[in-house]
Design a protein around this nucleic acid. Structure first.
Length: 852
RNA sequence: GCCCCAGUAGCCCAAUGGCAGAGGCAGAGGACUUAAAAUCCUUCCAGUAUGGGUUCGAGUCCCAUCUGGGGCACCA
């Protein structure tokens, strides 16, 4: 008992800084006084309205992670800063509360997902509130509530009516043992995570959203967004627009044609075989009697592979001959058609022309199955020994011979179009969005299947279509969702003809709720429409969106897609939802590594002397490295513990002090205690001495003005670590004098307030003011007091520093040069040499370039 | 295999192409103390992963390599 409490009691007990009391007190004050409630005040001009959004969390059973508060603290500081600068700031928080873990938890424990989810939300809310963020909690939403998903369903109906939702048969990961579909993350190395059975692909009826219809706009509109270039690049690559040609190959022995997409139609003379994906619709038709058994075996083998297996580059190429031949349209040659899983049905037409001489994958396949390789681009290698994938002049290519790539592509497309054998084509990597899940814990898709009327949407006035309560979350066994077994719910009447009908049993993916939550925050309690257009126009678009880089593609692309659909329907006023995006880096942790690179759980490590670590049981020396936090390494930091021990303000400020927001950085508890110590120093400034109304020394006032300037600029640009460093400089200066001048102290409290709001409120009150410091104007500075009159000028010879002198900041170039040339130390370096060049940077340096 | 990001002091990190150091941690010394802790003051520590290049001048820009982290759908 005693030893356990020793560490915690040490700091808390010694402290003169009662963060625990202070933090509770001010959190209650803000709540009681609704300090951060925000309204659409029409008197605030549009440029003074800011919408600052955090990616809302999935409320997992594990509770808040130290990674969450990083982004939340950053936006909180920024919002408080904006408020103090006269902005009307919308800053909401909510929960992305549908999701697989709650359902799996229900399967394991029988706890209904609604119960566990709401329990988790309560815990998350409490944890988030304990950090003192300035959210307008009146706007909290949770995607699993029927008040919310009413409108998720309503938007789906709009998509459906617009023809953007369609049914298709698509494969799922199917576990034959559990008789259930699995998410990708539930498949480990091709096996079912739960029972270890080999997972197979099973085609089932699914709902798909036509995101490809928006591919061009999703691509083009990226240009105007203030997003990290790397994220834009990832989205561009994901959309993957390419220009090429569609080419028709006639089958040799039937009337069927195979259409292929290629970006390199200029290499058509080198196409020596074709490959179609195992899922291609012509597979059964073109398979010859002799090859039937081999093909069927191969198809079965391919069906057992996950996408990951098929995309693993290290693997051997596999495939099987179909027994049929196609005709190469340019030269009339018969070429074999193979079936292989390195061709994906989801890209292009699911069929390729193989040019082994100039494509590495085709080359490997040709070598393995002994298919001919014909060089059509003159390269620097023997194509029988390796593929030549660079550009070259065409050879063995009839009318293309002698041409370069660009001209040959044009010539070939013209040739194909003339003969109706092909045409120019644009292709995208982007695929339509598989939108249905065979799960219970998601938004029911509001459609009815009627034997007479077909598919009928649930009438809008009957929404929300609520998720029925149940006690069994077991899969249906057929691949359908557990909803299929709830008879009273599934069986309904057709909204059109009134006859008996069945409800759609698929539910929506977790993405659905997060596709539009930023709009619901604008008007969270509206039961007539998903958002009031006036409120939408008041706030949108989101001015700053902060979240993890793991959402760089999917979430952000899906939300942009929905937003564009809503825009086309005239329901929102902006083309794009998120004008500016910032990704916060990951908070990692230290881990300890043996010589053989294996990792040791943190509780097995002893620090024998500073920065020397050994494994407790063996005494083996260990190297400290940086790793992701993980349960198995026992290096996960729990925010609750940190807040208890050091307080929310220390936690907030430390996370901002660790380094730049955008980069990943390791958690260090000693680093945290350093920030705690800084806050304690701030506290003791006014605890130990009286606030004085006398004027401060000019040197101190200069430091203050420099500090205000730096903190202002760095807070506005989200460079919080350097802003904090400057505040430390000012506090260190204050420690050098015995008084506490009010003219320094009060601006310092204001500068600190976005970072450590609880402490700042308390200090503000103790300085004799009414709360709240959050409503005070941001301090201003006098530019003249941020400039030093005397500066140190560096004197260089050939770019190397040889001497330094103090000069007026306004010294002319000539004066600086003259001073340099008369400097005794510099003379030694230039005497007797020829001066080649003289460079003078005013206020900074003189560089004299000499030659012997 | 491809794409993206990052390598600065023992550690976390600063540095408009211009003195490698703002701040913190750890270390050392001193003050205070009967002593320790806490606190305060002072202080040590490098040429920026490696090799080239551009430049009067490179941590910063360019090329190549190495190491680490993250992402990926064999994209024809």
């Amino acid at each position: 008992m005693l030893t356990e409490n020793y560490g915690m009691g040490m700091i808390a007990g010694m402290s003169k800084y009662p963060f625990n009391e202070i933090e509770k007190k001010w959190q209650k004050y803000w709540e009681d006084n609704q300090t951060f409630a925000v309204t659409e005040d029409p008197s605030v001009p549009p440029e003074k309205r800011q919408y600052v959004l955090d990616m809302f969390p999935y409320p997992s059973g594990a509770g808040l992670h130290v990674g969450h508060p990083e982004g939340y603290t950053a936006t909180d500081i920024y919002c408080r800063y904006l408020r103090m600068n006269g902005y009307n700031v919308l800053h909401p928080m909510g929960f992305d509360s549908f999701g697989l873990p709650a359902e799996n938890y229900a399967l394991k424990t029988g706890t209904p997902p609604l119960i566990s989810t709401e329990r988790n939300i309560d815990n998350f809310r409490k944890q988030i509130k304990s950090l003192g963020f300035c959210y307008d909690w009146n706007r909290e939403i949770s995607t699993h509530t029927s008040e919310y998903y009413h409108w998720t369903q309503w938007i789906f109906v709009q998509l459906y009516k617009k023809g953007l939702a369609y049914e298709s048969h698509m494969p799922i990961n199917w576990c034959p043992q559990c008789k259930t579909g699995l998410a990708n993350e539930e498949v480990k190395e091709g096996m079912c995570e739960r029972c270890g059975t080999h997972v197979v692909r099973k085609n089932i009826r699914q709902w798909v959203l036509k995101i490809t219809a928006y591919a061009d706009r999703l691509l083009e509109d990226l240009d105007d967004l203030d997003w990290p270039e790397s994220v834009k690049l990832m989205q561009r690559n994901w959309i993957g627009r390419s220009e090429g040609a569609s080419v028709l190959f006639r089958m040799a022995d039937s009337d069927d044609t195979l259409e292929v997409y290629t970006t390199r139609c200029d290499t058509l003379f080198g196409a020596t075989y074709m490959v179609i994906a195992p899922e291609h619709p012509l597979v059964s038709k073109i398979t010859s009697a002799e090859q039937k058994q081999a093909v069927e075996e191969y198809l079965e083998q391919a069906a057992r592979k996950s996408d990951l297996d098929r995309t693993d580059l290290a693997k051997e190429k596999t495939g099987v001959f179909s027994g049929s031949y196609a005709i190469n349209p340019v030269n009339g040659k018969k070429i074999p058609v193979w079936i292989a899983d390195y061709v994906l049905i989801s890209y292009g037409t699911g069929a390729i022309m193989a040019v082994p001489a100039h494509d590495t994958r085709d080359w490997e396949f040709a070598k393995k199955f002994d298919l001919p390789i014909i060089e059509v681009l003159k390269g620097e290698v023997d194509v029988q020994r390796q593929a030549w994938t660079e550009d070259g002049i065409h050879v063995n290519s009839g009318f293309l011979d002698g041409m370069n790539k660009e001209d040959a592509i044009k010539a070939m497309i013209a040739w194909l179009e003339e003969r109706n054998l092909g045409h120019m084509a644009v292709n995208y990597k982007l695929r339509d969005w598989l939108f249905s899940r065979q799960r219970y814990w998601g938004e029911p898709i509001p459609l009815v299947h009627c034997p007479h009327c077909g598919i009928v949407p649930v009438p809008e006035e009957q929404l929300p279509l609520t998720l029925p309560e149940t006690t069994s979350y077991e899969p249906s066994g057929t691949g359908e969702s557990p909803l299929a077994n709830i008879e009273d719910w599934v069986n309904t009447t057709c909204p059109v003809c009134g006859g008996p009908a069945k409800r759609e049993t698929n539910t929506m993916p977790q993405w659905a709720g997060s596709c539009w939550y930023y709009l619901r925050y604008l008007d969270p309690h509206n039961d007539k429409q998903f958002v009031d257009p006036e409120k939408e126009r008041y706030w949108m678009p989101v001015d700053l969106y902060v979240g993890g880089t793991e959402h760089a593609v999917l979430h952000l692309l899906y939300a942009r897609f929905w937003h564009k659909v809503l825009y086309d329907l005239g329901l929102v006023s902006t083309k794009e939802p998120f004008q500016r995006l910032v990704n916060q880096g990951m908070i990692t942790s230290f881990a300890y590594q043996r010589k053989d690179k294996t990792l040791v759980p943190t509780d097995q490590v002893e620090e024998v002397s500073p920065d020397v670590f050994v494994e407790k049981t063996t005494g083996e020396p260990l190297e400290r490295i940086v790793a992701k936090m993980s349960k198995s390494l026992k290096n996960v930091i729990n925010p609750d513990d940190i807040i208890n021990e050091y307080g929310a303000d220390s936690m907030r400020m430390y996370e901002m002090f660790m380094g730049p927001l955008q980069v990943s950085k390791p958690w260090s508890t000693t680093g945290l205690s350093g920030v705690w110590r800084f806050l304690d120093r701030v506290w003791r400034l006014c605890d130990d001495r009286k606030i004085s109304d006398e004027q401060a020394a000019i040197a101190l006032r200069k430091v203050l003005n420099k500090t205000i300037k730096k903190v202002t600029e760095d807070t506005a640009s989200l460079n919080f670590n350097t802003a904090i460093s400057q505040m430390m400089v000012l506090v260190n200066e204050l420690y050098k004098i015995d008084t506490l001048p009010r003219e320094i102290w009060e601006p310092l409290i204001l500068l600190l307030s976005p970072y450590v709001p609880h402490l700042a409120e308390e200090l503000w009150e103790r300085a004799g003011h009414e709360p709240s410091v959050a409503n005070m104007p941001w301090p201003t500075y006098d530019e003249a007091l941020t400039i030093d009159e005397e500066v140190e000028v560096v004197l260089q010879v050939n770019g190397k520093v040889r001497s330094r002198i103090m000069m007026s900041k306004d010294a002319t170039k000539d004066a600086m040069l003259a001073a340099a040339k008369s400097d005794a130390k510099l003379k030694e370096w230039i005497d007797g040499k020829t001066v080649v060049k003289e460079i003078v940077v005013p206020g900074r340096l003189v560089n004299i370039v000499v030659k012997d």
